[in-house]
């Protein structure tokens, strides 16, 4: 006996992801899925970004790592609230882990939810968390060929942050190559040259976040109004 099913295998995840998206909409929170290789500077980015967004707006953070609470510990005094998810063997976060974490967080007050995904350029791209935007970090030491080597994640990115740009002179990194490779994937993706150490690109990044936050809530920016 053969049964015709025709069912999305990831339906369970996608249903929860859509619920998360609805939740974020109701609470007027911009959910940002941060994706990159291990060590590209995600936690450092958040350490700089969250204080810079204060006091006009509130941020909360969900950090996914295979092991340890180190990233959450680093962020706990900077963010409004931080939750760490240890994924164990899983190389990415699932939508239901976000849904469960939201139960522990007072997210209704938050303007920004930063989700630091597990360091990996492949798997996190395959699982919708219900985020509003995907931000992919590529750090200069990783090399200028990564967009061509991992095209899928860069194609679905809303923004590419080229991190550790302060190291560009020390390394043989061809910026134009990255721009060319990106333009073959998605003409609409934005790129910001960024450094957590020098502050390069910080204003542009903060503006991008504020614009996306305004767009996502579909009304006037709450962080300006209050």
């Amino acid at each position: 006996m053969k049964v015709n099913v025709v069912k999305n295998v990831l339906q369970a995840n996608d249903i929860v992801a859509n619920k998360n998206r609805q939740t974020f909409k109701e609470s007027q929170t911009l959910a940002i899925n941060l994706i990159s290789s291990p060590g590209s500077g995600k936690t450092t980015l958040l350490e700089k970004t969250i204080p810079a967004l204060n006091p006009d707006s509130q941020s909360i953070v969900i950090v996914g790592d295979l092991q340890t609470t180190r990233d959450a510990d680093r962020l706990s005094d900077k963010a409004y609230q931080v939750t760490q998810i240890n994924t164990g063997l899983s190389c990415h976060l699932y939508a239901n882990q976000i849904a469960e974490s939201l139960g522990d967080l007072n997210f209704k007050e938050a303007d920004f939810l930063f989700i630091e995904n597990v360091g990996n350029l492949v798997c996190p791209g395959e699982f919708d968390l219900g985020e509003n935007v995907k931000v992919v970090l590529l750090s200069i030491p990783e090399g200028d060929d990564k967009v061509a080597k991992y095209p899928t994640i860069f194609r679905v990115a809303d923004l590419v942050l080229l991190t550790k740009i302060d190291l560009i002179d020390a390394l043989d990194f061809d910026l134009q190559r990255v721009r060319d490779d990106l333009s073959k994937l998605n003409a609409n993706v934005q790129l910001i040259e960024f450094s957590s150490h020098t502050g390069a690109g910080m204003e542009q990044w903060l503006d991008w976040l504020r614009i996306k936050q305004t767009e996502s809530i579909g009304t006037q920016a709450r962080f300006i109004k209050e």
Binding site: M1, K2, V3, N4, V5, V6, K7, N8, V9, L10, S183, K184, L185, N186, A187, N188
Partner: peptide, 19 residues
């Protein structure tokens, strides 16, 4: 120019199961 709507290629679908 790379400015597209993806129509196919994103699905993972269970089609049939048999015994």
């Amino acid at each position: 120019v790379a400015d597209v709507e993806v129509l196919e290629g994103n699905q993972i679908i269970l089609k049939t199961v048999s015994c």
